Amino acid sequence: MKILIDASRAVIENAGIARYTRNICANLAAQDKNNQYDFLVTFARLDKEKIRQINNLSKYGKVIVRRIPGNFKEFLWQKKWAKIFFNHWYKNYDLFFAPSFLELPQFIDIPAILTIHDLTTFRFPEQRGQEVSQRLSRVAQSACQKATQVIAISEQTKNDLIKFCQIPKSKISVILLAAESKFHHKKLPKENFILSVGTLEPRKNVPTLIKAYALLPEKVQKKYQLKIVGGVGWNESNIFITIKKLKNKGQVDFLGYVSDKKLIQLYNQASVFVYPSIFEGFGLPVLEAMQCGAPVITTCVSSLPEVGGMAVKYLDKSGDSQKLSQLIKNMLASQKLQQQMSQAGIAQAKKFSWQKTASKTIAILDLL
C-alpha cells in the first residue's frame, strides 16, 4: 500500500504529539517493508528548525511540503466542499494516517487511521475556555466519526472515546506510547533538586506542587531546589500567584523549554521526579523519568497507573498538597527508597518501546 502520513506537527512543534509523530513515522518506515510511506508537511513560514526536521523526515520517505497557515487548514479541513481544492493531495494513496484529530480532513475518500491522545476539552472545557473547547471537541468528534479506525494511546482514552464521542469499541485499538531510547539511565551524580516537567497549564496542577513544596521543612527547601521544565501554555496565572506567596521564592526555578540533552541530564540527576497531573491521555514524562532512573511520584488518575504500574508512588487526590508534600519528604529522606524506586522504574519502563508501538500500528494498517 501507499500510505500518506500528515507529519506536520513533527516539523512545527516540540511537545507530546510532535514527539509521537516523529517516532511513529521513523519506526513505521523502519519496520514495515511491505508498505510505502510518504509524509505531508504543512506550514505558513519556513525556518531553519523546520528545514532540519524536514531533512530528518526525508530519511524515511518522500516529504511533500505545502504552504498553508495552521488556522486556515483547521477551518478548511472541516469543509467537505474543500475537496475540490485539496483532494488531489490524497487521491493517489491507499490509506491516510492522521497522528491527531486536527490532521484528518472531512473531505477525503480513502480509508483513514486516526490517533487520539486525549479528550481533555470534553472533560475540562473551562481550562481552555468554552469557545475554544467546544470548537476542538467538535473537530475531534467529527474526525473520530470520519476515521475508518481509531488508535487510542491508553485504555483511559479508549473509555473517553466511548463516553464522549460514542465511538463503538470495535472501531478503537489501544496502542500504548513509548519513550525514545535516548532517554536512559546514566551514571551521573545525583543533585539536590526536585524535578517536574510539563507545559504550564491548569491540567498539570503545578500550583499543588508549589504548595506541597512550601509545606516542606525550611531546611529541606534550602537543600532541595524545585525545578520546573516546560513552556508556557494557557491560564497559567495561578502558578505565578502561588509563587508570590512562597517564603523561599528563589528556590523555585522555571527553566522553560530545554533541549532533550538537558532534559535527560535533569531526569538522571533529580532526587525525585514529581508529576501531579489532574488528567493525562498517557503521561509520557513519567515514562521518560522512569527510563532515566528517576524515582517518580505521580497522581493515581486517568492513564498514569497504566504507565507507572507498581513502580511509582501515587498521590490519591490530585489536589492534596499536604499528602504530596509528605510523599516528597519521605522520598528525599531515604536513599534506600530512592534506589528501590529507581530500579523499579527502569524495570517498568522496559515494558514500553517504539518498536512495539510501531508493530501494533502496522498490524492495524494491514487490516484496512
Rank of each mutant, 00 (worst) to 15 (best):
F254W: 04
L263D: 06
I151R: 05
N268S: 03
R45D: 15
M310E: 15
K262Y: 00
L216G: 00
L28M: 01
V65M: 03
M290N: 04
S100K: 11
G129P: 03
P69E: 03
A15L: 08
T157P: 02
R19P: 09
V232H: 12
P295K: 05
A82V: 02
E201Y: 10
S8C: 02
G308M: 02
V258C: 02
P69F: 04
Y224E: 01
Q338S: 12
Y37I: 01
R66A: 08
K48V: 09
M1D: 09
C300A: 15
L188T: 01
K227I: 09
C144I: 04
Q149W: 15
F39E: 02
Q251L: 07
C300V: 09
L28T: 00
A214E: 02
M341L: 14
I116H: 10
Q265L: 15
K73L: 15
V174E: 08
F282I: 06
L119R: 07
Y213H: 01
A15Y: 11
A29G: 07
F124I: 03
I243T: 15
G281F: 10
I12D: 11
K317P: 09
K222A: 10
A344F: 00
I116P: 14
F254N: 04
F43A: 08
G281E: 06
Q291C: 05
D316R: 14
A30G: 08
D260N: 09
Q36H: 14
P125W: 00
Y267K: 06
L209W: 00
A270N: 10
L368D: 02
K171E: 00
Y37D: 01
Q134Y: 14
I113Q: 12
F39H: 03
D6K: 07
L161P: 06
Y93Q: 02
V65A: 03
T361H: 05
F124A: 07
L46I: 10
P207D: 06
K59G: 05
N205M: 07
G198C: 01
F75K: 13
I228F: 13
Q78K: 09
A18S: 12
S342D: 00
N14F: 14
V11I: 14
V132L: 14
M310D: 15
L215Q: 14
Q78N: 13
K317E: 14
P207A: 09
I228C: 10
L365K: 06
A270R: 11
N23G: 06
K329P: 07
R52D: 13
P202R: 08
E180H: 08
N23M: 05
G61T: 02
H88G: 12
P295F: 03
N248D: 11
V63A: 04
K91H: 12
P276E: 06
L76H: 09
A26Y: 09
F97L: 03
P276V: 01
C292I: 05
R66V: 09
D118E: 03
Q130H: 12
L195K: 04
T42H: 15
S325D: 01
G230M: 04
A289F: 07
W234Y: 12
I194H: 08
P99H: 03
F282T: 02
Y20A: 05
C144P: 12
T361S: 07
E236Y: 15
Y267P: 08
I3S: 04
N248Q: 13
L367Y: 15
H117C: 02
T42Q: 13
L4G: 05
L102P: 13
G61V: 01
A333E: 13
I3R: 06
W77Y: 15
I24P: 12
E288H: 06
K50L: 02
K222G: 11
L209I: 02
I68R: 04
Q355N: 12
